[in-house]
Lab assay of single mutants.
Amino acid sequence: DHDVVPEDKFQETLHLKEKEGCPQAFHALLSWLLTQDSTAILDFWRVLFKDYNLERYGRLQPILDSFPKDVDLSQPRKGRKPPAVPKALVPPPRLPTKRKASEEARAAAPAALTPRGTASPGSQLKAKPPKKPESSAEQQRLPLGNGIQTMSASVQRAVAMSSGDVPGARGAVEGILIQQVFESGGSKKCIQVGGEFYTPSKFEDSGSGKNKARSSSGPKPLVRAKGAQGAAPGGGEARLGQQGSVPAPLALPSDPQLHQKNEDECAVCRDGGELICCDGCPRAFHLACLSPPLREIPSGTWRCSSCLQATVQEVQPRAEEPRPQEPPVETPLPPGLRSAGEEVRGPPGEPLAGMDTTLVYKHLPAPPSAAPLPGLDSSALHPLLCVGPEGQQNLAPGARCGVCGDGTDVLRCTHCAAAFHWRCHFPAGTSRPGTGLRCRSCSGDVTPAPVEGVLAPSPARLAPGPAKDDTASHEPALHRDDLESLLSEHTFDGILQWAIQSMARPAAPFPS
């Protein structure tokens, strides 16, 4: 592969990997390779389809078979030569091979799209000592099968071997295949498990690692696999990028399955594409389908809103127990993405979901129960707010008499603000006073009005108090039968009158 990737590009890729991570280095090298001529790309395919690569990765054979028959990708048995050289000459001794072996032994695996480039050397060096003999053996194999790289107009793939297949390693990572398949204008990513390549439709969760975000852009890794992070704060999961590491605690105790298979379609829109997988259930989501939507993949363990709600429900009964003089119970939860139609709101002032922060849900004790107040519409209280300059209440639009249902020339009671006709409430011909108009209920007259088809109010509507207090003497005590009587009149003013009279009014101040 030294004929494909020059030394300066190799060093530039290593520097970019240390600065921005393996995914960015892979993407940059792939983009550079696509700008080369067809001879360089053909050399790339020839390096990929060597015999030892085909033996190690069985899924490469179907890719090789898909090439046109007129494309010669065979390799000479006596060494490598550029395709432009007409004579089959043995190339001179390859010093770059020693360079590659020494550099890969030092860096474990470079971040390139060629056999030198995919593992994360920093994480491997940190986690190597417990498994040094086995990992050293794996390093000797890295130059042979560490990076199976493929690129063409139909298929483009980048393979990364790992030393996680050490025997006896619980939940060992089998390997990473960062794979971009450009077929019919689409893009897919796969993962390699035990020599087999699994596409998103049959993606397997190998051991402790999972394909957290099938994305090839942005600074985030394709698999949430930063070796420096180790395990999740809650004892979460091992990262795919942690090559040759000792077994780590796999999943939280509440995880239903340690080796679950995540779905390959969004649980909201039932469509495929780039998904984020939940650590607590097999569901996966688009970032845009979450509520609120996320802009980037959160670091650490992530769970959907259903799993978060289940966790909150487990903690909430203990938080609601009476604990005198104790601060509110704080339950730190990872930043969760909410699927459509589901929402768990945190306290005000918290950062938005999706940031690399930890939301704190506070379970406050329930407030003391209070008697429910009568629910009145805002339009129902409008007549009470229509007060004239002299303190006389004006008529609201649409006000109707509670007896006849007519809204023409209605009066407004100064005591309960109900609309009424003087002739309907006082049919006996009582003279109307000039000021202080009161309806039949507030004036103490319980004589029913002779209106055909309208039920008369119940005599129990009024329960006047002592006459010594004029204001308190007109406080009506309405009961269920009074409400039914008012409802039978089918008037809004009657219902409003009952609601206003049912509310307690402050006692009249004593004259000074």
Rank of each mutant, 00 (worst) to 15 (best):
Gln309Asp: 09
Gln501Lys: 08
Phe510Tyr: 08
Arg283Phe: 04
Gln316Asp: 10
His286Cys: 14
Val344Ile: 12
Leu373Gly: 11
Gln325Thr: 09
Ser378Lys: 12
Cys269Asn: 05
Leu385Gly: 10
Cys278Glu: 07
Ser502Trp: 03
Glu475Ile: 07
Pro334Ile: 15
Asn262Glu: 13
Gly444Ile: 10
Asp406Lys: 07
Glu326Lys: 07
Glu475Tyr: 09
Cys439Tyr: 02
Cys386Ser: 05
Ala477Thr: 09
Ala319Glu: 09
Pro282Asn: 11
Ser306Leu: 07
His382Ala: 11
Trp302Ser: 13
His382Glu: 14
Val454His: 08
Pro327Cys: 11
Gly354Tyr: 15
Arg480Trp: 06
Pro256Gln: 09
Arg461Met: 05
Thr430Val: 15
Ser245Leu: 10
Pro282Cys: 10
Glu314Asn: 06
Ala504Gln: 07
Gln313Ala: 09
Pro367Val: 07
Pro293Gln: 03
Gly398Met: 07
Cys404Arg: 02
Gln309Asn: 09
Val410Tyr: 08
Arg338Gly: 15
Pro298Gln: 05
Ser488Phe: 06
His425Leu: 04
Gln260Cys: 08
Ala418Thr: 05
Ala370Leu: 13
Pro374Gln: 13
Ser485Ala: 07
Pro506Cys: 03
Pro383Trp: 15
Leu496Asn: 00
Pro466Cys: 07
Gly402Pro: 12
Val344Asn: 13
Asn262Leu: 12
Ala399Tyr: 13
Val387Tyr: 06
Ala472Glu: 06
Ala467Thr: 12
Pro348Ser: 08
Ser441His: 05
Ser299Val: 14
Cys277Met: 07
Arg345Cys: 05
Leu287Glu: 13
Leu294Thr: 07
Pro397Trp: 14
Leu333His: 13
Pro383Asn: 13
Glu330Val: 12
Ala499Asp: 02
Ala371Tyr: 14
Ala251Gln: 14
Leu376Thr: 10
Ala508Leu: 09
Gln243Trp: 08
Cys307Ala: 15
Gly336Arg: 07
Gly388Val: 09
His286Ser: 14
Pro457Phe: 10
Ala319Trp: 14
Arg318Glu: 08
Asp406Ser: 09
His425Gln: 02
Ala477Gly: 09
Arg270Met: 13
Arg270Lys: 12
Gly398Glu: 07
Pro247Cys: 05
Gln497Asn: 15
Gln392Ser: 11
Gly300Tyr: 13
Pro397Ala: 07
His474Met: 15
Arg270Ser: 10
Val344Met: 09
Arg295Gln: 06
Gln243Thr: 12
Arg461Cys: 08
Ile276Lys: 04
